[in-house]
Structure formats: structure tokens, C-alpha cells
Write a protein that binds this DNA or RNA. Structure first.
Lengths: 156, 156
DNA sequence: GCTATGTAGATGCGCATGCAACGTTCTAAG
DNA sequence: CTTAGAACGTTGCATGCGCATCTACATAGC
């Protein structure tokens, strides 16, 4: 009965809802295809690729566990286990932090850098085929603008 | 249509890559916030909400397991277990299919419909606050257009 | 110095998910 | 009618993740 102005804004048109749902589906689908490519061609999970990529772009190819966890959108415990696996495979090493005895660096090894370099063409090809190539430059620009509004403050 | 133009363009500009990464981050972030809302306020996982929603929109509030799995982007085994849980909680029932003895329907119960109705305001509010409200109508239109290109043929 | 509080990372545990394999039932070819 | 193959849903198993908890270390307040 008391349908105030703000509550009436609660209503979402079916079209709006469809946009959201399609976004979900598109994202899941593209991500899965991308991960399948990496898995088949390089036996590398997407999360692993993300870790290697983040490390390779960081100074001295290293990052504190905590920072890395944030960048790859993983919980700290999740990252601990992921780094365990990557270390077991020789792609990453753990190194003590001089300035903080609690801290550890995850460091990209040469083997990790090589593996990343091997997998990158697959990764880029996947993104291009499923995402970038589908949109023209104008749409890509619009997309970037929207993302900046949706996700303010974070440019990477 | 020139094959070479798109095939030879292996290079991806840093800006393009950033768009992709931001899309990933935005999607993961929004989804997690949404799921957290539903979990806290209604003890309902996002996947469960999706199942209830899909069923509620289907004729006779029922869907074959296989169809449902496709709609909620789950493997068949994953859906089997999810329906197990929802059935245990009384939100969904399994019903034999008359025309195909192999098949089962997942059917939304009254309790399930009630639970869905309770949770829907939370769901819509979350989408609105984190997604729809952030974009203006023009951007939403552009977004829909892009999604149709990215995900052709599927309108829901 | 000493304690209280906070932070970094690792670990125990439970949960949700996918893959491969299985039984059951449908369908098509002969 | 019989049989081979496909489709539907379930189950065993392995995996990857998050939460809560733990230990070690750091930092602020006294």
C-alpha cells in the first residue's frame, strides 16, 4: 500500500533482468571455453594462468601472497593451495620477505615464465575469438566506460 | 570476408586486455556480493535461487532435469546433487515423467515458491544496486546489444 | 620492556562441482 | 522381435574452494 518512490524503483523490467542474465551466461560461457582451451593445450587452469600472468607483470616477478590473492580473486587459503600446486610443478617459488618475517613472496620461476609464454597465445586467441573480435572498437570503448562505472578505482 | 584480416591480428592491445580483465573482475565481484546477500538474508545459494527462478517461470513450475541443468549452467551430476539438497529442504520435488520413463521433472513446491518470493526482493535489489542503477538507459541498451553479439541465439 | 591487538600465511574441515562410469529406458536398423 | 546405440539421471571419485582456526610475527599503547 505504501509504495513510495524509492520502492517503486525496486521494479526491474523484464528487459533489464534479461540483460543481467545474459551477462551471467556470457561470462560463464566464455570463461569455461577459455579454461578448456588452456587445459587441453597447456594443462593449465585459468586461475593458474592468472597467477603466472600477475607475477610476470610485477617487479622482480614476485608478489606477496596477500596481494596476489586479491589480484586473482582468491581467498588467502585458496591461493596457498594454488601456489602449493604451482610450486610442486616448478612454475613458482616461495621466498621469504626480508622486511617482514611473516610474509612470503610468490616468485615466478624461469620454467613458469616459459609456461606462461607458451600458453599466452592460446589465452589471447581465446579472448579475441570469443570477446574482442565480436565487438567493434566503438562497442569496446562503451564496454570499457561501463566497466569503469561498475568497478570504480580499479584499472587492472 | 577476408580471412587474413582477422586471423593475422594476433596482437591484443593492453587496453583490450584490460577491458577483458575488468569484465572478469566486475562479474566475479558482483556475483559474490549477490550470493552473499542471498546467503545472509535467506540462506540461499545463488545456484539454488537460479533453480527456483527457472522452475517458477516454467509451465506447471516444472522442468526436466536435463533442461534445467542447461539453464542454470550446471553439469547434470551437479544438478542432481543440487536438487537433492533442495528436495531435502522441501523446496523442490522430483516427479516421474509419464512420456519417458527415464526422465524426471524437478517441480517447484509451494514452499519453494514462497522461499523464492521472499528472496526475490533481495536478488533484485542486489542487481539494481550493483549493476542496473550504475548504468543509464543508453548504456544498458548498448550492453544488451553487445551481449546479443557475444551470445547469439539465446535470449534468456 | 610488556601486553594487547592486528596481520600474514598455513591447515582442518566441509561443501559444491565436474568427469567417468553405470543402470535404465528409448529409438532405430535389420 | 532383436539388437546396437543413444539419451536420462545417478553415483564414485577427485578436485578446488572458502570459512574458521592456528601459529608466528608485527605494531601500538602503556
Amino acid at each position: 500500500m505504501t509504495v513510495t518512490a524509492s520502492e517503486s524503483r525496486d521494479a526491474i523490467s523484464p528487459e533489464e533482468l534479461v540483460v543481467w542474465r545474459m551477462l551471467q551466461r556470457a561470462q560463464v560461457r566464455i570463461t569455461r571455453l577459455l579454461e578448456a582451451d588452456l587445459l587441453v593445450e597447456h594443462d593449465l587452469a585459468l586461475a593458474s594462468y592468472d597467477v603466472l600472468m600477475q607475477l610476470s607483470e610485477s617487479p622482480d616477478r614476485r608478489l606477496r601472497m596477500n596481494d596476489l590473492a586479491e589480484r586473482v580473486l582468491l581467498s588467502r587459503s585458496g591461493l596457498t593451495r594454488l601456489i602449493d600446486r604451482l610450486q610442486r610443478d616448478g612454475l613458482v617459488e616461495r621466498e621469504a620477505c626480508a622486511s617482514d618475517a611473516r610474509g612470503l613472496f610468490a616468485v615466478l620461476t624461469d620454467a613458469g615464465a616459459l609456461r606462461l609464454a607458451e600458453a599466452t597465445p592460446t589465452y589471447l586467441r581465446g579472448i579475441r575469438a570469443r570477446f574482442l573480435d565480436v565487438l567493434d572498437t566503438d562497442e569496446l570503448r562503451q564496454c570499457a566506460a561501463m566497466l569503469h562505472k561498475l568497478f570504480p578505482g580499479s584499472d587492472v
